[in-house]
Simulated assay, not measured.
Amino acid sequence: MARDEVGPGLLAAIGAGGVLGSLGRWAVGLALPHTPSQVPWGTFLVNVTGSAAMGVLVVWVLSMDRPHPWLRPFLGVGVLGGWTTFSSYAVEGRDLFASSSPWLGLGYVLGSLVVGLFAVGVGVTAGERLFGRRR
Rank of each mutant, 00 (worst) to 15 (best):
R25N: 05
P69T: 04
V79R: 00
P40V: 12
R25K: 05
A52Q: 05
M54A: 12
Q38C: 04
G76A: 03
P36N: 09
P36F: 08
M64Q: 15
P33R: 09
Q38V: 09
V56G: 00
G76T: 00
W70D: 13
P73G: 08
V56K: 00
L62G: 14
T49Y: 05
V59P: 00
S51H: 06
P67S: 11
A52F: 14
W70F: 14
R66L: 06
W70Y: 15
H34E: 12
G78H: 03
G78R: 06
G29M: 06
W41Q: 07
S63W: 01
A27C: 05
G29F: 04
P33K: 08
V59I: 09
F74Q: 05
N47Y: 05
P67Q: 11
S63T: 02
V39L: 15
W60V: 00
G42Q: 10
H68D: 11
G76Q: 00
W26M: 13
P36H: 09
A53P: 00
V61T: 11
L45T: 15
L71I: 12
A53Q: 07
G42N: 07
V56N: 00
R72E: 06
S37E: 15
P73F: 02
P67K: 04
F44C: 09
P33Q: 11
R25F: 03
L32F: 12
V61W: 01
A27M: 10
L45M: 12
T35K: 14
L62P: 04
T49M: 12
S37F: 12
V58T: 15
P67G: 08
G55M: 06
M64F: 07
L75C: 10
V56E: 00
A27S: 13
G42K: 09
M64W: 03
W70R: 15
M54R: 05
A53T: 08
L57W: 08
M54L: 15
P36M: 10
S63Q: 04
V79G: 02
P33M: 09
A27T: 11
L75Y: 04
G42W: 07
L57N: 02
R66C: 05
F44P: 10
V59N: 01
T43Q: 11
A27H: 09
G78A: 07
V58N: 12
L71Y: 06
A27K: 09
F44H: 07
N47T: 10
P67A: 14
L32V: 11
L57Q: 03
L45N: 05
L32Y: 05
L75A: 14
R25Y: 06
V59Y: 01
L45K: 04
L45I: 12
V28I: 12
G78M: 03
L45C: 09
V59C: 06
V48P: 00
L45W: 08
V46P: 00
V48S: 04
F74G: 04
V56Q: 01
R66H: 14
